[in-house]
Design a protein around this nucleic acid. Structure first.
Lengths: 164, 164
DNA sequence: AATATATAATTGTTTATGCAACTATATGAT
DNA sequence: ATCATATAGTTGCATAAACAATTATATATT
């Protein structure tokens, strides 16, 4: 009887402490927290974290086609189109129709776009510092390795399972 | 000259292999891949992963107020309101006005809601198996621990920095 | 050459997040 | 008791992801 009561109390407590213990949800929560912090820090530059990642990719490699940008940033084509729209309307990038392949556009950053990235690279780097404040160098490396393994395997599974 | 050429080739390759190495972005990509897989597997039940997490919380603890659900699922109040709207329109939950506090609603699941969760718990558990296919038991524990540390620290930083 | 098929990009729809503004009810201080 | 403040919930707006369908151009097949 007493043990039952105790167990009841324990379970009730667990209920409050561990509402959703699965990896996927934890990862989502952590990602959103990190992103919100980065967004906060990028506020003065009027660019979102996802826009930053796309613009960064463009600054590093001028003249990519959208499909290639989509692959490198792990976005699908519609998402890429729309983020590029935002970047274009802010005057940070421009497009040019492909000469050989007229289906595609070559994407370039403007001077303004390059300057935004140059100015914000330290901010993005600061996010790694935030993580390193609670993780050792080894742990960070291990974390990245695990994330890559999970990501690769989940992609594989998804492709497999959606193919029928 | 030759060395320069080689280096150019190497950098170009790096360019393709490591487009965005930062933790935050990697975590977002991994989260989305896991979520997409879960969504695929939940397809027959007409419920999304985020809806699942909210419904699961309700099934485990009947009569929570929305604020409490928001806290446990790490969502803000608007997001919670809208997800509850979806669950309600599918007949999986219902609300009841609070007796003591008439600002709040007590949320309960319907029979249908409970059955959906009971039927899909194995599917959600299957996501852990997907992760365990590429991570040892120890690594998974370590990963969860690191995620919690990062999440807590990022929350702290965000609160600190948004407070001025 | 004509036709089928693949690919690049766009548009529309649904779901979800984050932020700000708002309503209604509770609580605290004078 | 009144007035200020806090809290629960909702609504509106911007951004983004996932999926399906569409358009336009390339490539492959016969």
């Amino acid at each position: 009887m007493e043990r039952n009561k105790e167990k009841g109390k324990f379970e009730q407590q667990q209920d409050q402490e561990l509402p959703l213990g699965s990896v996927g949800f934890m990862m989502g929560v952590t990602y959103r927290k990190l992103t919100a912090l980065l967004q906060q820090r990028l506020k003065d530059y009027e660019i979102t974290p996802e826009q930053w990642s796309v613009l960064y990719t463009i600054v590093r490699s001028q003249g990519l086609i959208q499909k290639e940008i989509a692959d490198r940033t792990h976005k699908d084509k519609p998402a890429t189109t729309r983020i590029l729209d935002h970047l274009e309307s802010k005057g940070l990038i421009f497009k040019e129709v492909g000469k050989q392949d007229r289906r595609s556009f070559l994407v370039y950053c403007t001077d303004k776009g390059r300057k935004v990235i140059e100015a914000t690279i330290p901010i993005e780097a600061g996010m790694t510092d935030v993580v390193k404040a609670v993780l050792s160098e080894n742990e960070l490396v291990h974390l990245m390795d695990m994330l890559m393994r999970i990501q690769a395997h989940a992609s594989e599974m998804l492709e497999q399972e959606s193919r029928e």
